[in-house]
Every structure is written in structure tokens, then in C-alpha cells.
Design a protein around this nucleic acid. Structure first.
Length: 571
RNA sequence: GCUCUCGUAGUGAAACGGAUAUCACGACAGGCUUCGAACCUGUUAUUGGGGGUUCGAAUCCCUCCGAGAGCACCA
């Protein structure tokens, strides 16, 4: 790769290894640039400009004659590199050879990552709030896998805890009242039962007591309650599976909180034995350094908490998967909780070599800038959102392609609609809050999934038509020299950065790096498409351009798929 | 009250401490006898206020203002 080559020349010219090479936003400052002279000037007590000049002279000696077009030194001491077309043509050949593998790290030691994402609660329909965890987690999963990691996706279902006391108590009450709706109870009905009971509980403490008794019975393995619990769990899971199928979400495991239930007493005991936990006001807590409030692992009534489960989960995952990294795709509002949890994990020495990271994301806020929550009764169903998006996509498909068959139209509507929703989320910094807005969320123009999908479909169309043309094929290496148009060089330059983007995501966990990258690539591809004829150009030029079109479309497709978005041959 | 996060064109966003802050939407003006106009071209406007560190700050530090979130018997 070009960047690596510049780096190696710089190392030779300076005898330093810690060298930054950046890409100036403004093309006037070259394809690549380094500030190494500015950094070194202080230590060497030389003027940065003079130092930069010396390095520039050296590096020109180290590189082949036809590699740089120009190496420039600019005040206060930047060295800017302008590459020759030849350098890019060679680069293109390297990329073309890689084919669909382009972007994968060449050498990497096998590492393991566990990604905790989605984690919906049983007996509540998935809301748009769960969307972020689900698709950010899935995108990270895909990127890690593509990068050669052993990747484990675990859906940590919220299938245990106090809410089941409420649900079971409420359910039994309805049963007594012979509520007909209980026969084939839906997840929406379950939530209504829950919300109603929750509201009544505030006025009637007796109901709260009843819920507490039911949860106790459940935890002790009471058959009737376990039966009801299982029923709720199944109804919910079936519902979730439907949504995961539409969204193309997959997990390796779905252990859920209930899975860890039996390990909880052991966790508390271990924490006490290790002197990590103490008793406080009748409860068992782990004091956390620097924090006023400790982390509670057992309530004064003996019940365990989410926290206890999370500790058990870490221990279990470390033992089973021996991960190097565990990622939690969970909202920012749990930031404080996770910082406490991680400190407790360290105290207990549960993590071993694994690095635990909270991949946080911003809240989904209502138009009044307040948090969405089920308790507040504000709920936009995820299913409804997806449906709406598909409807909008279908309408547009009807406008743009009136002639196509009904089944094709449905397929396009689904892929475009789902893609739009995902891209809307993945294209922005995950840490920003998102204000819920139908129109923004379901945008099908500009910086959106359909734009990328459309670009891909156009490029594929050119390739399809080319196959129908007769004529001798040339090796792309031989023909790369015909790629000399500025937009062609820009495309190659951009293609060459793909591996860097992938690498940065495995380091910083920001899917929007990839979305940004793909959008830029698509913009360039459209400019190319608009201005540069492919099929009607001279045969050898045509071969070169077709190779470029092929490579760009492959990267677009790979990138979209990594984001969990499908590409369409026709739309 | 304490702690954390965030304030970038009219709107939504981007920017390893780098150079003239980049996109999209919107608005306005153009472009299909040419590989798909879900596209392309042009015009438009921005770092909340004040200090500091640095050769260089949207980015780091301090302070003020504004918004949001969190702060043991929920998950």
C-alpha cells in the first residue's frame, strides 16, 4: 500500500518509527502529509523548515523516480506528498488482485471478541430504543469477523428479575377475572398487563407485596410460576425472532439473564471470600474506589440483582470463550453502572486477559428532548418503524420503476426500507443522542442507504452490459495505465484507504467510520459514472475502467454488508 | 446537591491536536437523442461566551451559559 511505502521511506530518512502520516482534507496539500519535522524540531533544536527540507531531499532519494509527482515543504514545516499516477496505477493492481478480500488485514494474530448486543426484555415488545444496540452490535460483529477475529455474539436477554413478579401477579389476577385475552396472549397485551399493574401498584402497596411474593416463588422454582415464565419467554422470543429475521440479525448465543441464576449465590460468596464485598445496611455490596455508592450484589431481602448476573456473566464468558475483548453495546445512560461493574470485575479478577469495554451510544430522545421509556408509557414499536420504512420505500419504487413485477418490488422495498433505517443510525457517531423524527429516520435521499444501493446497482448494470459486448479481455495490470482521469485516480486513492477504515473500527468501535467512507466512495463513483464513459471508450481503456467499476462495486457491497445492509443488483 | 456527556450553517451531521472546518437535507439556478435522473453541476450560510496551553485548538485545561443523563435494595 502507498501509505505503508511512504512510511517506510520516512523511517529510512529519519531513523524514527513514530511517524504520523495524515491525509489533508484539502487536496492542495497533497495526497498524504506528515508533521514529523515539526515534532522533531524541538528535540533536535533545529528549525522545522530546515529539517523538513532535509527529510524531503532524503525521501526523494529513497523512493523510485516515478513514485512521487512532487514532495513539497510548506510552512511551518509540513512535508506534503503528491503521488504520481503510476503509483496509483500500481496500487490499483494490488487492490484488484485482492478482489473481494480487499480490506481484510493481511496479518493478524487470532483474537477473540465477545459482543453483547440487542438484549431486549422479555414481555416487552422491542422498541426503537433497542434498535441502536442491535444494529451497532451487529455491525461491529461483522467487522470483527471480517478482520479475522473469532467473534461471538451473545444476546443477553432480559428474561429474569423483578418485572416477572409483576407480570406473574398481574397475569394471575387476570386469570381469576377470566380475561379472554389471555388465551393467545400477544406481547403487546403482555406489556399492557405489565403497565396497568405497575400503575395500580403505586396506589396500592398490597399489589407490590404480591408481586414480590411471586418473584420469590419463581426464584425458588415453583412449578406454576416457572410455567408462566416459560410461556412469556416463548411468546417474546418468537416475536423477537420475527424482527431479527427482517433485520438480518444473528447471534451465536442467547443465554439471557436466567441462565446465570444458579451461579449467583456462588458469586456473592466468592466476592465475600475474596474480601471484595462487605455487608452494608443488610445488603451485600462491593465498595468501588472513587465512587460514593457501592455496587450492590445482594439485596437485604436476599434477592440478587442485575449486577450479580452481570458479574456471573463476565466470569462465565471468560471461562468459556477466553476472549481478548468483551464489548457491551449498551446506551450511554448506563455509563456509570458499567464503570462500577468493570472496577468490581477487576477487584474480583474475573476478566483475566480480557479487556472490557462499554460501547456506549446516545439516547433516543422524544421531540421534547426527554428520554423514551416504557415506564413513561412512551413507546414506538420497532416493528411499526420498519413497516413504515418499507412502505415508504415501496412507494418510491413504484414511482421510479413503474414497470417491475410485484415480487421484485416487494424485495426492493424491503431491502431499501430496512437499509435506510439501519444506515440512518450507523452513519452517525454512536455517542450522539438521536431525536426521534420519522422523516429523518426514514430518509431515502442524500446520505442514505438507498444512495449507496443505487450507486451499486448502476455500477453492476455497467458490468452486466459489458459482458454482453464481445472483444478480447486484457489483464487489468496491463490496462491500469489507462486510468489517468483525475476522478479515476481519486477513486483508486479512496479504495486504497479501505483497510485503514476497517482497522480503525476494530480499534475504536465506531461504525460510522465505515458509513462515511462508503458514502464518499459512492459520491466519487457517481461523479465518475456521470462524466466518464465506460462501455463506449476504446477497448483497452474500457477494460481498465471496467476493472475499476468492478473493484468499486465490490468494496461498496462488502462495506454495505458489513453494516448489515444488503446490496441490490437492480432497484 | 454531586458526577458524567454534549453545544459546529435554517435543520441533521463529519473532522488521529494540523493548513482555507467537510457533507447531507432545505432554498435558489441548471443538466437526460449519451453505460439507470433514487443521479450530477453551481449558489447559499457555521465551531455557545470568555480566558489559557501549543508553532498550530471544534478537538486539551479553566470558567460561565444552555441541553441531556446518572447518582445501592429497578434493569
Amino acid at each position: 500500500m502507498i501509505k505503508e511505502r511512504i512510511y517506510s521511506y520516512l523511517v529510512k530518512a529519519t531513523n524514527k518509527k513514530d511517524i504520523e502520516i495524515s491525509m489533508p482534507e484539502n487536496g492542495k496539500f497533497g495526497h498524504y502529509s506528515t508533521n514529523i519535522a515539526l515534532k522533531l524540531a524541538k528535540d533536535l533544536k533545529k528549525s522545522p523548515m530546515e529539517l523538513a527540507e532535509n527529510i524531503a531531499v532524503e525521501i526523494k532519494k529513497k523512493a523510485p523516480n516515478d513514485f512521487f509527482k512532487k514532495v513539497e515543504v510548506i510552512s511551518p514545516g509540513f512535508i506534503n506528498f503528491f503521488l504520481s499516477n503510476k503509483a496509483f496505477q500500481d496500487e490499483f493492481w494490488e487492490i484488484y488482485k485482492e478482489g473481494k478480500k480487499w480490506g481484510k488485514p493481511k496479518k493478524s494474530k487470532k483474537q477473540t471478541v465477545v459482543i453483547d448486543y440487542s438484549a431486549p426484555n422479555i414481555a416487552k415488545p422491542m422498541s426503537v430504543g433497542h434498535l441502536r444496540s442491535t444494529i451497532i452490535g451487529q455491525a461491529l460483529y461483522n467487522v470483527f469477523k471480517f478482520s479475522g477475529w473469532k467473534t461471538i455474539g451473545d444476546n443477553h436477554l432480559g428474561d429474569w428479575g423483578k418485572q416477572f413478579g409483576i407480570l406473574i401477579a398481574a397475569y394471575k389476577e387476570r386469570l381469576k377475572a377470566k380475561d379472554k385475552k389471555l388465551k393467545n396472549i400477544s406481547i403487546d397485551e403482555l406489556m399492557r398487563v405489565y403497565v396497568d399493574y405497575n400503575a395500580q401498584m403505586k396506589e396500592n402497596p398490597e399489589l407490590e407485596e404480591r408481586a414480590r411474593l411471586e418473584i420469590k416463588k419463581l426464584q425458588k422454582g415453583n412449578k406454576e410460576n416457572i410455567g408462566i415464565w416459560n410461556k412469556f419467554r416463548k411468546i417474546s422470543l418468537d416475536e423477537f425472532k420475527k424482527i431479527y429475521k427482517i433485520l438480518g440479525i444473528k447471534f451465536d448465543y442467547c443465554f439471557g439473564e436466567s441462565f446465570y441464576n444458579k451461579m449467583l449465590p456462588g458469586i456473592v460468596k466468592e466476592a465475600l471470600d475474596k474480601n471484595a464485598a462487605v455487608e452494608s445496611e443488610g445488603a451485600t455490596v462491593i465498595p468501588v474506589e472513587g465512587d460514593e455508592t457501592p455496587l450492590m450484589i445482594q439485596k437485604s431481602d436476599g434477592a440478587f440483582l442485575y449486577t450479580t448476573t452481570d458479574l456471573a456473566t463476565v466470569k462465565f464468558r471468560v471461562k468459556k470463550f477466553k476472549p481478548d475483548l468483551i464489548l457491551y453495546a449498551v446506551g450511554s445512560e448506563q455509563g456509570f453502572y458499567f464503570s462500577q461493574l468493570f472496577k468490581a470485575v477487576k477487584k474480583l479478577d474475573f476478566a483475566k486477559k480480557a479487556k472490557l469495554t462499554h460501547v456506549n451510544f446516545g439516547l433516543l430522545l422524544g421531540e421534547d428532548l426527554k428520554k423514551f421509556s416504557t415506564r413513561a408509557g412512551r413507546h414506538v414499536s420497532l416493528e411499526g418503524l420498519i413497516k413504515e420504512s418499507i412502505d415508504r420505500a415501496r412507494k418510491i419504487a413504484e414511482e421510479k420503476q413503474p414497470g417491475i413485477s410485484k415480487s421484485d418490488k416487494e424485495k426492493i422495498a424491503k431491502i431499501v426500507g430496512v437499509g435506510a433505517v439501519k444506515y440512518n443510525d450507523l452513519s452517525q457517531n454512536r455517542e450522539s443522542n438521536i431525536i426521534f423524527d420519522w422523516d429523518k429516520m426514514l430518509n431515502l435521499e442524500g446520505n442514505s442507504a438507498p444512495y449507496l444501493q443505487y450507486t451499486y446497482a448502476r455500477l453492476r448494470n455497467v458490468l452486466r452490459k459489458a459482458r454482453m459486448l464481445k472483444g478480447k479481455k486484457q489483464k487489468p495490470k496491463a490496462s491500469a495505465e489507462f486510468l489517468n482521469e483525475p476522478i479515476e485516480i481519486s477513486l483508486i486513492f479512496h479504495l486504497s484507504q479501505f483497510p485503514d477504515v476497517i482497522k480503525r473500527i476494530t480499534e475504536f468501535y465506531y461504525p460510522h467510520y465505515l458509513a462515511d467512507y462508503l458514502f464518499d466512495l459512492a459520491k466519487m463513483a457517481n461523479v465518475f459514472y456521470q462524466n466518464i464513459p465506460v462501455l463506449k471508450s476504446n477497448p483497452e481503456v474500457r477494460e481498465a475502467r471496467l476493472s475499476l467499476v468492478k473493484t468499486v462495486s465490490d468494496v461498496l457491497k462488502t462495506g454495505l454488508n458489513l453494516l448489515g445492509i444488503e446490496a441490490l443488483e437492480k432497484m
